[in-house]
């Protein structure tokens, strides 16, 4: 991947005011319509560090959204969505974005994040390779994860967070 030096990449937190941009990005990036609950969740201050808009030269071109799942006294980050508009791919934006979240997770204290995991549709090898490059490991397959799109199955990928 190449990174262009002259271009500025920046991130901003999600608020009720820029959620319209997230909606717009989601509508072109993903084949799924998200629920109102999803949009309410990502502007929760608790996940501020893990839900971002990605700007390229001050134009919003991508988004990443995670939620915190607490189970059995363990707090994990579930990566719900991540995407960059097609014309801006292969510029290292995705890597920078993911890295941003991983760094935030490793320094997060309340709660401390144990691991981060996500689903990838089994037709999407490129995505899988992308996450593996960033230290994610396949830990299993979730059968019939997608109900309305083909193929239905999804890989589960995860990465343990090392705390600084």
């Amino acid at each position: 991947m190449t990174t262009t030096t002259a271009s500025r990449v920046s991130f901003s937190s999600l608020t009720p005011n820029n959620i319209g941009t997230v909606r717009k990005l989601n509508s072109v990036l993903f084949p799924i319509k998200y629920t109102e609950k999803f949009y309410e969740g990502i502007i929760n201050p608790q996940v501020e560090d893990f839900c971002k808009l990605v700007y390229y030269n001050d134009v919003p071109v991508g988004t990443i959204c995670c939620r915190i799942e607490s189970k059995d006294g363990e707090d994990n980050l579930y990566l719900m969505t991540m995407g960059v508009l097609a014309p801006y791919r292969t510029r290292g934006l995705g890597s920078q974005t993911l890295q941003q979240i991983l760094t935030a997770a490793s320094s997060h204290t309340t709660p401390a994040i144990k691991k981060i995991y996500l689903h990838v549709q089994i037709s999407n090898g490129a995505a899988k390779r992308f996450y593996e490059k960033h230290g994610f490991k396949e830990v299993g397959i979730h059968k019939d994860y997608y109900k309305k799109i083909m193929p239905h199955h999804a890989w589960i990928l995860e990465k343990t967070i090392e705390h600084s």
């Binding site: 998200y34 991540m82 995407g83 960059v84 999407n124 995505a127 994860y145 109900k147």
Partner: peptide
Amino acid sequence: EPEAELGS
């Protein structure tokens, strides 16, 4: 729908 994947 449940949550989606990398948009590529």
